[in-house]
């Protein structure tokens, strides 16, 4: 309850609280076991093994299991529809075999994120995400002006936090942004 009140106070406009509600629902609805099946083992192997002769190899070999990706994507799109205004629900997951690295695994139509540098296959785990993965608690983030995210843990059937979702919206969405 204390966390909820803190979020309320920090969030200001009602939209942020609503993002938190969406994140709370995502925490329950998003399947951590499914998240683990999205990237193919071959793709993961190419990602964690550096090819000194081909810096683009991880991207060129990036691949997903279609069925798992699609099930996850549909869940995230539906969750985003709960938001009162345009928002995205992104899935993030630590990269096995690469310490302190995390990758965005499923993005959505508005391409909003406070964390993703465009085009990055994986990146250093931001402290906010590390906390969510470690504590299993949602966290409100406002690191980029005009953007609000709520991070929520995603658990697997063993009860381990294996991923997280970023429910993110923008105060003033730019219709031309990310059309590229």
């Amino acid at each position: 309850m204390r966390l909820l009140l803190l979020l309320w106070a920090l969030a200001g406009p009602a939209a942020a609280f609503t993002l938190d509600e969406v994140a709370a629902i995502a925490e329950v609805m998003v399947d951590g076991d499914l998240a683990k099946r999205i990237q193919t083992p071959r793709s993961l192997a190419k990602m964690v093994t550096v090819d000194p002769r081909d810096e683009w190899a991880p991207g060129d070999n990036y691949a997903v299991d279609h069925a798992s990706f699609l099930r996850m994507k549909k869940t995230l799109v539906r969750l985003a529809r709960l938001c009162p205004s345009a928002c995205d629900v992104n899935l993030w997951k630590p990269v096995p075999g690469l310490a302190d690295r995390i990758q965005i695994l499923v993005r959505n139509v508005n391409e909003m994120s406070q964390f993703w540098p465009w085009g990055a296959l994986h990146q250093k785990t931001p402290p906010e995400m590390r906390r969510v993965l470690e504590t299993g608690r949602r966290e409100l983030v406002r690191r980029r002006p005009g953007m609000t995210s709520v991070l929520a843990p995603v658990s697997d059937s063993l009860g381990d936090v294996v991923a997280l979702v970023e429910v993110v919206s923008q105060d003033h969405p730019d219709p031309q942004e990310n059309v590229k």
């Binding site: 990036y62 993005r107 391409e111």
Partner: peptide
């Protein structure tokens, strides 16, 4: 492209026959 994580297949410069 799937590397940009929004879709599960490559529309551009398709690499995978599936």
């Amino acid at each position: 492209k799937k590397r940009y994580k929004a879709f599960d297949w490559d529309g551009d410069e398709t690499r995978f026959p599936d």
